[in-house]
Design a protein around this nucleic acid. Structure first.
Lengths: 192, 192
DNA sequence: ATAGGCATGTAAGCAGTTACATGATTTA
DNA sequence: TAAATCATGTAACTGCTTACATGCCTAT
């Protein structure tokens, strides 16, 4: 039940609806966690029942109503307990890297395509993160902000996301190039 | 059912038992996937029943017998189909980054400890990967190996692991330092 | 002796994915 | 008029985790 902690952490940035959280946890920003909309709606219901978050109905014009959530004191306590407990090892599961591992026995063409796609996605996120860092430090330089800023948590995780995406971008392009050159070398055979 | 593809990819490197795979997928090497021993034993049984891998009993002296597995032609076909299909977006779930995101409201002390621990783990893996790269390219320099080597898949994924762990190591230490300095600045309060 | 490594599983329960369902509004 | 966005869910299924179970061998 670790999704709830990720939700609590995300809700520290402001009030969000299930739909908004779904974007944050999917296409959007949060590079530290992934969750599907269905998961979020279900979890938010449970969390509200458990008193960890409080929902508030917001009426909108030209759009359906939405329910936005805020972290309660009980939610903060839950987060504190979670943070003090030893962290579980990071969970990394990536189809693409599995494919590259097996690439010697496979047709390289679709792999190269997928690597380039992933590289583009990484580049897009990279831009997003860079803008976000600028916005988060609001006029200040990085060092003074990290020393004296009030809320550095999101900044630090954004830095992690930036590092990760930069690394991913480089690796994907380099790997795509390597596989392509090898494919050309072997006389254009499509598969081994 | 994506674990099976990771298992197939791992078994391309050689014959392994469930126990050996468990190490590869846990403490061990495979930075591209995580899986528990129970998961592996169950999945190997299913994969053998489905004809994707073939098990072979190996009698050992001074140790219990083990069953090592090899990928069959059907297994290769399964891998090929998997590689040609569009890749699912990478799945990243990390407790530690969630904690850092919420760090402004939390006691920094246990977080700093956890960040340092993670940094050490990353450093250990880093060393492992560097040795593995040397071993995999077997005497050759990196560039000629990547151009002409026979089996570059594991090398490329190992490079990804190396990049990832290096990045993680740096980020953890930098973040730990930042949180520590801020804690000192705020007059040694344990929590906000 | 006791802890740790080797070796393989079962069973129960929880978490996560996929598919389905609805409906209004805005944009192409 | 079709597609995309906003908005929220349910139901069935699959996959993953946690706890339990066994037993032999080696090193401290």
């Amino acid at each position: 039940m670790a999704l709830r902690h990720a939700v609590l952490a995300a809700l520290l940035d402001g009030e969000y609806s299930g739909y908004q959280l779904a974007k944050i946890f999917d296409v959007g920003v949060a590079d530290f966690w992934y969750a599907s909309p269905q998961q979020l709606y279900a979890e938010l219901t449970r969390m509200e029942a458990g008193g960890l978050v409080a929902g508030r109905r917001v009426t909108q014009e030209g759009r359906p109503d939405k329910r936005v959530f805020t972290v309660t004191d009980a939610g903060i306590a839950e987060l504190a307990a979670f943070a003090a407990a030893p962290a579980k090892p990071l969970l990394l599961r990536d189809d693409l890297i599995v494919k590259v591992h097996a690439s010697d026995l496979l047709d390289p063409a679709p792999l190269v395509v997928q690597l380039r796609e992933r590289a583009e996605q990484a580049a897009a996120k990279l831009e997003l993160f860079e803008k976000m860092l600028v916005r988060l430090r609001g006029g200040l330089e990085e060092e003074p902000f990290l020393r004296r800023g009030e809320r550095v948590g999101p900044y630090l995780t954004c830095q992690a996301g930036l590092r990760w995406e930069r690394q991913m971008h480089e690796w994907c392009l380099q790997t795509a190039r390597t596989l392509e050159e090898r494919a050309a070398r072997h006389g254009g055979r499509t598969a081994p």
